[in-house]
Amino acid sequence: MLLIPCPWCGPRDEAEFHYGGQAHVAYPEDPAALSDEEWARYLFFRDNPKGLFAERWSHTAGCRRWFNAVRDTATNEIHAVYRTGEPRPVIA
């Protein structure tokens, strides 16, 4: 079980969190202006990398806030957590 460093509460057991999938997939500014394919990409297409992945978590059994984390999907190591709206940090 991961130990996830909530940016608001500090490190907590994974059981307190809900996973929210890939981060930085913004709701389109004007959905009506998108082609069917562009809209389908927003709806259905997500990255599935082996390695660093920016993803969303919600501390549902704690502060109930959403935040982002950069996790290595191969090792489960969390390299960074940051608040919603902040840019993805650069990880060497």
Partner: peptide
């Protein structure tokens, strides 16, 4: 409630 919070926090802060 989670759905509302998600949109308020992540898309429409």
């Amino acid at each position: 409630l989670d759905w509302m919070e998600e949109w308020l926090q992540t898309e429409w802060p």
